[in-house]
Simulated assay, not measured.
Amino acid sequence: MAVRTRSSLGKVDVLPKGIGSLTSGHPPAQTGTLFVMGTNGGMRVAPDAGFDVVFGRCEPDVHVCVGANDPHVSRRHGYITREHSRWVLYNVGKLAIRFPGSRLVLGGHRAELPAAYTPLFIVTPEQEHLLEVRIAAGAPGRGAGNRHDAATYDPGGWELSDLERLVLVCLGQRYLRQEPWPQPLTWAQVADELGALRPGERWNAKRAARIVTEVRRRLSARVDGLLEEEVPPPLGNTLNHNLISELLVSATIVTADLALLDGPDGLA
């Protein structure tokens, strides 16, 4: 694999592991700046740096390590490069890379990355390995497109009540735990788990479904695929899958929210 590493002084930085997840944003940066985080840290690359970010299992041979202890992940699994003013993901590994939801980028294929936060997953037989990507989007308004120092606005996610967040985290916990091929819990499973978590409340499948249905209805004005009439049968888990995918992409729910399922200590 021929990977370009043309860099300009001062336009490429290493991000330490301690910087944390990119879900909560990033330091001030030029519009179009690429941030990539893996197992042990990541990279920040300016849009005009001429630098390709290589990721994969073998840490000495890549810029961003992902799936270090999983031999199913290729030593160099892919790279992200700048093409025609867009950042583009190339999968050069054997296993697929999954975007939020069900979209897959197979080996030998490419996909453009949106100017937003995008969690990518390398799908292996035993688990999915997370590679976080965020592309800085400039502040809206007159002249924002020409300001290299424009502030970056975090998507902020959708507004949820505390109760809605609890139910949705419970419903989508398999996604947050990065299980392979995750599916939403059933209404009965959600009710059982929340009933055990909050024994003083009356939980059943209908109550859990009603709360989630209201969130889907509210978001459907701006998000497609959340209403029965928008999805061809059979429905199965499609509506809830689409809802959870939207909440993950928008960073409305994040891995740290799993603490809500730990009881009073997790809520403290």
Rank of each mutant, 00 (worst) to 15 (best):
Leu106Trp: 07
Trp181Val: 05
Leu113Ile: 12
Val167Cys: 01
Trp187Glu: 01
Glu112Ala: 15
Ala205Ser: 14
Val169Glu: 01
Asp154Asn: 11
Arg134Tyr: 08
Arg110Leu: 09
Ala111Gln: 08
Gly141Trp: 09
Val215Leu: 10
Phe121Trp: 13
Arg142Val: 12
Pro182Cys: 05
Leu163Pro: 03
Gln189Asp: 13
Leu168Val: 14
Arg134Phe: 07
Leu166Tyr: 03
Gly200Val: 03
Leu163Cys: 10
Arg202Glu: 01
Arg218Ile: 05
His109Gln: 13
Val133Trp: 00
Pro184Phe: 05
Trp158Leu: 09
His129Gly: 08
Asp154His: 06
Arg110Met: 11
Val105Asp: 14
Leu160Thr: 00
Gly141Cys: 08
Arg217Phe: 11
Val105Ser: 08
Glu179Thr: 13
Gly156Glu: 09
Asp149Trp: 02
Val123Leu: 14
Trp181Ala: 15
Gln173Trp: 02
Pro180Trp: 06
Ala139Asp: 07
Ala208Pro: 06
Ala139Thr: 06
Arg110Ser: 14
Arg174Glu: 11
Trp158Val: 03
Pro182Arg: 02
Arg177Thr: 04
Tyr117Trp: 11
Val169Asn: 01
Gly157Gln: 09
Leu104Trp: 08
Ile211Trp: 07
Leu185Asn: 00
Glu112Val: 13
Val190Ser: 07
Trp187Met: 11
Arg177Tyr: 11
Leu176Met: 01
Gln178Gly: 06
Gly172Arg: 02
Ala116Gln: 11
Leu113Phe: 00
Arg103His: 14
Gly156Arg: 05
Phe121Asp: 04
Trp158Tyr: 15
Gly200Phe: 00
Glu179Cys: 10
Gly157Ser: 11
Val212Met: 00
Val167Lys: 07
Arg177Gln: 15
Pro100Glu: 12
Gly107Cys: 07
Arg216Cys: 02
Glu179Met: 13
Ile211Asp: 10
Lys206His: 09
Leu160Pro: 04
Val167Phe: 03
Gly141Ser: 04
Leu113Gln: 03
Ala144Val: 03
Leu219Val: 12
Ala196Gly: 14
Ser161Gln: 11
His109Phe: 08
Gly101Tyr: 03
Pro114Thr: 06
Arg202Leu: 06
Val105Trp: 04
Gly143Pro: 02
Glu214Pro: 05
Ala115Lys: 08
Gly108Met: 12
Pro119Val: 14
Arg177Leu: 15
Val133Phe: 06
Arg134Thr: 08
Val215Gln: 05
Leu106Met: 09
Arg198Trp: 13
Phe121His: 09
Ala111Phe: 04
Glu112Asp: 13
Arg134Met: 10
Leu131Tyr: 05
Ala208Val: 13
Arg177Trp: 08
Pro114Asp: 15
Lys206Asn: 14
Leu168Pro: 01
Pro119Cys: 03
Ala208Ile: 07
Leu130Glu: 10
Val123Thr: 15
Arg216Phe: 13
Tyr117Gln: 00
Val190Thr: 08
Ala191Asn: 07
Gly172Trp: 04
Leu171Asp: 02
Trp181Arg: 15
Pro114Val: 01
Pro114Lys: 12
Arg202Trp: 04
Ser161Arg: 09
Arg147Asn: 15
Arg218Met: 00
Pro119Met: 12
Ala144Met: 03
Ala137Asp: 04
Leu219Ile: 09
Asp149Ser: 12
Val123Ile: 15
Gln127His: 12
Tyr153Phe: 08
Cys170Met: 02
Asp149Gln: 10
Gly101Asp: 10
Pro114Ser: 15
Val105Gly: 11
Leu163Ser: 12
Leu168Phe: 01
Leu163Ile: 11
Ala115Asp: 11
Arg210Val: 12
Cys170Phe: 05
Thr118Ser: 11
Gly157Asp: 06
Glu132Arg: 02
